[in-house]
């Protein structure tokens, strides 16, 4: 099947849908977009199914040759994007024709860009999902990140319904984020002083970040847990290993682990975290489960009601 031919794969470009659910019993992780917000907008701007397979381009450096005519959208990190060498805008439906070259350069703000095509990339799901998890060799084309010469199949098709997300409705990527946390797991094993330190200190994002977890650096925090049995880890869980430096566990985390956790970052805010670069500053804020639910519902409503601009 034709689609797009990969000329330059970029540093880490992955085919993925919203993630693999219901396979934790086999030890398979979730995968899926590190930034759900930008991913969801990409599909919505094309009128795609919410779970349609997109390309997540971390840091940039991608060049694709189109073999078909197709509508597409690029959302997420701000990066120099070019169609046959001419600059093109992000967050807006555009057309590409067979023979055209699409380039997504290195991100200038944010780190993850999302490329959606009309109808999504046509990838056979494994364990119910197309999400590529390189560590597990599952999903995508061959369980791996894009390689030069890969062919990304899609049936193409253009839409006359060209839309744009207004600048004021787009997320902004900077070098600071406040991450809202639902306290949970072993939170009571962190005494009030430790909790105070955790929620009142500024942390920096280290270089040691990957799709499994983002390691932070700052005030150390310690729990009074002595030995603990391995247990299930949910998305966004904040693990505090013996060195006291928090790790936020992300999409490709191992499904079980044995380090104390103080709570979990809400998915809306792991999306913000995923767009930060090393050295960015972070603060944590504890919220109640009611607040977390409110934020989720409000965000859903905002996403559904937000009207797109015709262009």
């Amino acid at each position: 099947m034709s689609g797009f031919l990969v000329q330059q794969p970029g540093l880490l470009s992955l085919l993925l849908d919203r993630g693999r659910y219901g396979a934790h019993n086999l030890g398979l992780t979730t995968g899926g977009p590190l930034d759900f917000v930008a991913f969801d907008w990409a599909n919505r701007l094309l009128g795609n199914d919410a779970n349609a397979t997109c390309l997540e381009i971390s840091f940039g450096g991608l060049a694709l040759d189109a073999e078909i005519d197709c509508s597409f959208v690029i959302t997420g990190a701000e990066a120099p994007c070019k169609l046959n060498g001419d600059a093109i805008p992000q967050w807006q439906t555009l057309d590409i024709q067979a023979g055209d070259r699409l380039e997504i350069g290195f991100a200038t703000y944010g780190t993850r860009a999302y490329l959606a095509v009309k109808g999504g990339f046509d990838i056979a799901p494994s364990f119910g999902s197309t999400a590529t998890v390189v560590r597990e060799k599952i999903g995508g084309l061959h369980g791996d990140k894009l390689q030069a010469g890969d062919r990304l199949p899609c049936s193409g098709g253009t839409t006359t319904d060209k839309r744009r997300l207004a600048a004021g409705d787009r997320p902004h990527y900077g070098d600071f984020a406040r991450l809202r946390v639902v306290p949970g797991y072993q939170q009571s094993a962190f005494d009030p002083t430790q909790q105070w330190r955790f929620y009142n200190s500024e942390y920096s994002l280290t270089e040691r970040c990957d799709r499994m977890g983002f390691r932070l650096e700052g005030e150390t925090v310690h729990s009074n847990m002595v030995g603990m049995l391995s247990e299930g880890i949910c998305h966004g869980a904040i693990q505090i290993p013996a060195d006291g430096q928090p790790i936020v566990l992300m999409n490709d985390r191992q499904t079980i682990g044995g380090y104390p956790k103080i709570g979990s970052v809400i998915p809306l805010d792991t999306s913000k975290l995923a767009q930060l670069t090393a050295g960015s500053k972070l603060r944590f804020e504890a919220i109640s489960i009611e607040q977390a639910h409110n934020i989720h519902c409000l965000e859903q409503a905002r996403f559904q009601r937000c009207s797109l601009q015709a262009c």
Binding site: V182, G263, H296
Partner: peptide, 8 residues
Amino acid sequence: IAGQNSFI
């Protein structure tokens, strides 16, 4: 509570 949508 484990997270926004999970219990342990």
